[in-house]
Design a protein around this nucleic acid. Sequence first.
DNA 1: CGCCGACTTGAATTCCTTCAAGTACGGTGG
DNA 2: CCACCGTACTTGAAGGAATTCAAGTCGGCG
Lengths: 244, 244
Amino acid sequence: MFGKGKAPFEALVRKLERLAELNDEDRQALTSLPFTIETIGEDGLLIRAGEEKHHCGVLLEGYACRSKSLGSGGRQIFSFHFPGDILDVEHILLPQADHDIEAATDVSVAWVPSADLRKLTQERPAVADALWRDCLIDASVFREWVLNVGKRDPRSRVSHMLCEFATRREAAGLGKPQGAELPISHQQISDATGLTPVQVNRMLHLLVAAGIIADDGQRLKIMNSDALREIAAFDPAYLHALAA
Amino acid sequence: MFGKGKAPFEALVRKLERLAELNDEDRQALTSLPFTIETIGEDGLLIRAGEEKHHCGVLLEGYACRSKSLGSGGRQIFSFHFPGDILDVEHILLPQADHDIEAATDVSVAWVPSADLRKLTQERPAVADALWRDCLIDASVFREWVLNVGKRDPRSRVSHMLCEFATRREAAGLGKPQGAELPISHQQISDATGLTPVQVNRMLHLLVAAGIIADDGQRLKIMNSDALREIAAFDPAYLHALAA
DNA sequence: CGCCGACTTGAATTCCTTCAAGTACGGTGG
DNA sequence: CCACCGTACTTGAAGGAATTCAAGTCGGCG
């Protein structure tokens, strides 16, 4: 069973505090938002493209990812999310989901009615700032992903994706990149980078051979995050306030 | 010489009206925003990645695109913009530019101080809604581009890009996709799709051979927009309120 | 213990990129 | 008006890189 019971929005508040100056009333308002908790297993779908959604999901535990699929079968992931992230801020103003959101691991999510969140943004400018800024950073991340998938060579492409994953994980308070164990499958890396699983496998082996990562088949451990950043030419500026 | 003189923000207001219900005061406030006009020739840089920018650019005439470049030389375009678009709403809350913005044709831009725009959003909720929604749609477009560049085959990738270009052009009031003449070079298509110029050339010839587009070397004309959408499997839902 | 899913690995093939040479067009200056 | 020049586009051929295919291994879970 998931959920921290007492303070489900603790991570959310911590995140928004990096995005704007919140006062006690802001924090209070955030933590008193109504919500219902949903827990769902690995690979479960939280939101399906096309759905009308009048709630926003705050990730409490686990990892989630957002993706779009082609009729012809291909799937493209374009972001990973960590506890404290709002998975779909866009549903405050755009009820129609334009992509899928799914659990990358077992996950628990607090669903907050969009209307309450919206009201909050109208009454509390600092919260509005924080949420808006969050959207803007989201967009910045997507731009970087277009570049990653469109122009980087396979090796730096995989490396860059791992760097971002590790950096955002750290920003969510889950520990430093160096030595981090990332719960991500080759298939997910494949869907996130636009490479085939075979190619991903080969790139990872390259990195393993160089002693930069370790891969026991289940988890992927970063052994030398500086070298990884070097290969990826990773510049966290595009993460703005989310960079650690 | 560019600039409509009297009503530079006419197109902007028209666009924001599709994004939220504006009243006369909202419109009034928008049209009284202070600004300075800049005109710049094709390929000129409006904003460079890394810059601190305390103004937002409203595109008045011409086309612009946003892109990021790799140290190693590659350039990736991830959006095209038309008159009425704000090129960089993100600078309202994030002063540091994370990408380049350049003129795709000769262009004129009205620079509005971010602070004034920000004040407007604090005083006029409808304007805030419209601008926020604009950001969210922006982000949705980037997601679609990740998919386009990451997973679509070359033919539908180029087609999809052209469909979006034509659709957004139409949304800006520049005429229907069918028969539209798009002022876009092979190099730009290449940078937008992650394909080489050679490959782009070959894909365009395929489309020309099928009678779907015409290409006189300067301009690219859409002869059969339905067929183009078919090939691209173009679903404008991701453009939300921007779809025509 | 056995099954299933995820990862691994090599080989063949296909497709894209690269390279290089050539063409067409618009703009400039004579 | 014409010749020249530069840029953008065109085209074929060679080479290489990624995908696909297929068979095999490993580990966890029932």
